[in-house]
Simulated assay, not measured.
Amino acid sequence: MPDAITTDKPTKTASRKQATVKPAATRRKAVPGAKHEDKLTAILRTAAQLFAQNGYEATSLDMIADRLGMHKATLYHYVNNKESILYQCLVKSFGNLDTVMKSMEDRTIPVLERLRLFVRSLAEAQNNDFGRCLVLVGAGPLDNMTGDDIRQFQRRLDQTVRALITEGIASGVIRPCHPGMVSALLFGALNWVPRWYSGKGKFSIQDVADNFVETLVKGIGTGAA
């Protein structure tokens, strides 16, 4: 191959190219998978909203695609089917609750304080788009294999509350009661919030959670803490 011919004056084409090329130091490097993840998150969030509003069965892939302004075929670049969308939405609803449940084992923090933290964290997780989807739709539409993952996580939430109540009874800050019944009472109250809470009133979701937990504590507490 012959050597490139050089001239003192660059051609107009070369000048134009040089003007549009950014220095290497200033060019942004694309994060591998970031664009895909952003689009996937948007799909899941939109689906979660529609599942909560219309129900799982009444929500079609066409409806999800229309809300996003994309073709239905494009969805299949990111998800396999409607069931996989629901499963991923429910997994996202867990948020940081795994970390919160682990922190409930820290006995250097008074048990009633841990209970308050748990209720606040759960209320916040249940009242975002993914959390509402979990509460209002649940794992029922999923097959046994994937649905069991969700139900197992929900059982862990229940076991966390039971363990806190049992610990509180043993330490004397909670009066003798049935931990399972207290857990059912707490989750029954919290699970109803996504059905009526809109975020447009004067109370934040943290205000609601604090109100609930204080009412609960006054009912089961001994006043020793």
Score class of each variant (00 low, 15 high):
residue 121 S to R: 12
residue 149 D to H: 07
residue 135 V to C: 04
residue 81 N to P: 04
residue 115 L to H: 01
residue 88 Q to Y: 05
residue 73 A to I: 08
residue 105 E to Y: 05
residue 55 G to T: 10
residue 97 L to N: 06
residue 112 L to E: 14
residue 105 E to R: 13
residue 54 N to D: 08
residue 139 A to W: 03
residue 121 S to I: 08
residue 149 D to T: 03
residue 114 R to F: 10
residue 151 R to E: 09
residue 154 Q to R: 14
residue 84 S to F: 05
residue 152 Q to V: 12
residue 109 I to Y: 05
residue 127 N to W: 03
residue 99 T to M: 12
residue 127 N to H: 05
residue 146 T to S: 12
residue 77 H to S: 12
residue 123 A to I: 00
residue 117 L to R: 11
residue 71 H to M: 11
residue 104 M to C: 14
residue 70 M to T: 14
residue 139 A to E: 14
residue 58 A to E: 14
residue 94 F to L: 08
residue 108 T to Y: 02
residue 76 Y to M: 13
residue 61 L to V: 09
residue 99 T to V: 13
residue 73 A to S: 15
residue 90 L to G: 03
residue 86 L to D: 02
residue 142 L to N: 00
residue 129 D to Q: 02
residue 131 G to P: 02
residue 78 Y to E: 07
residue 107 R to G: 09
residue 103 S to K: 13
residue 134 L to F: 10
residue 134 L to H: 12
residue 90 L to R: 01
residue 76 Y to G: 11
residue 57 E to M: 07
residue 67 R to K: 15
residue 120 R to S: 11
residue 137 V to I: 13
residue 65 A to R: 01
residue 109 I to K: 12
residue 127 N to L: 04
residue 118 F to D: 00
residue 66 D to I: 01
residue 120 R to T: 08
residue 141 P to W: 10
residue 56 Y to C: 04
residue 55 G to C: 08
residue 89 C to K: 04
residue 136 L to Y: 06
residue 151 R to I: 03
residue 88 Q to M: 12
residue 104 M to L: 08
residue 56 Y to M: 04
residue 70 M to G: 03
residue 60 S to P: 04
residue 112 L to A: 11
residue 149 D to F: 05
residue 58 A to N: 15
residue 75 L to Y: 09
residue 118 F to W: 05
residue 134 L to Y: 09
residue 132 R to W: 03
residue 65 A to D: 02
residue 90 L to Y: 02
residue 92 K to L: 15
residue 139 A to Y: 06
residue 111 V to P: 02
residue 148 D to G: 00
residue 133 C to Y: 08
residue 91 V to N: 03
residue 148 D to E: 11
residue 88 Q to H: 13
residue 152 Q to S: 14
residue 62 D to S: 15
residue 111 V to F: 04
residue 67 R to T: 08
residue 59 T to W: 09
residue 123 A to F: 00
residue 133 C to N: 08
residue 131 G to M: 03
residue 105 E to T: 14
residue 124 E to R: 15
